[in-house]
């Protein structure tokens, strides 16, 4: 379960309040979507939950563990899978190697490769395993990014506008992939989106405005 208590995050030395005293509970295995206008603090909230940055005040607890008390890179490596608006693949590595990256250091290289290939197959791209990202279409790159996010069997999958750069057909494909995996493995899935069509697939819609939760 994800528990957010009195979370506040400021930027520019307090001039910008990105999140203001946010409280939020997300159940295990739940699929929630986070909506709000641009600049309302959606990404900031997701980054705090994913341990990409630390809050100025308040607590984020994931599966009973306070993020301020644990090793964040290990948490990111073992517990979370992140998907960004821009696929953020490493251009110098092939798709397969990109998917292997999160396993690095925790899994033997032979298993790494098999595991990565399994996931590429799951997103339907095993034929492109040895291609470099610049040879792929936007939708394909995002599917590789989904494979990379899921390769370490995360308990929590966080997606920040994963379909923001995609046409509706590819958006649908990516969402189906993520939802399918979420149901299959009972992971918690949080998707930030502008698109109501996508948001309404979720069990719960969280609306955020000016750094505060407007409605759940």
């Amino acid at each position: 379960m994800i528990k957010v208590k009195n979370l506040t995050k400021m930027y520019d030395k307090g001039k910008t309040v990105a999140l203001n005293d946010v409280n939020l509970d997300i159940e295990d295995g739940e699929f929630v979507s986070i909506m709000g206008t641009s600049g309302s603090g959606k990404s900031t909230l997701l980054n705090m939950i994913g341990g990409l940055d630390v809050p100025d005040a308040g607590i984020v607890e994931v599966m009973g563990e306070d993020l301020s008390k644990i090793n964040l890179s290990r948490y990111r490596r073992e517990t979370v899978g992140f998907i960004f608006q821009l696929h953020n693949l490493i251009p110098n590595l092939t798709c397969l190697e990109n998917v292997e990256l999160p396993l690095f250091g925790s899994v033997k290289s032979f298993d790494m490769k098999n595991r990565a290939l399994d996931l590429l197959e799951a997103v339907g791209l095993n034929s492109l395993a040895n291609k470099y990202p610049n040879k792929l279409s936007g939708g394909q790159m995002q599917r590789v990014a989904v494979a990379r996010a899921l390769v370490n069997d995360p308990k929590v999958v966080l997606a920040d506008e994963p379909t923001g750069q995609l046409d509706s057909e590819n958006s649908e494909l990516i969402m189906d992939l993520m939802q399918e995996k979420q149901e299959e493995t009972n992971t918690t899935l949080c998707v930030v989106t502008h698109d109501f069509e996508i948001a309404k697939k979720a069990e719960k819609i969280i609306k955020i405005k000016d750094g505060q939760i407007e409605s759940v």
């Binding site: 994913g50 990409l52 890179s73 290990r74 948490y75 990111r76 490596r77 073992e78 992140f82 953020n88 693949l89 490493i90 251009p91 990256l101 999160p102 690095f104 250091g105 990379r148 370490n152």
Partner: peptide
Amino acid sequence: TREIGVLKSIGWTNLR
């Protein structure tokens, strides 16, 4: 920088 951010976001340590 961006690439480093990606590596860190998927759990690579500073050391790595």
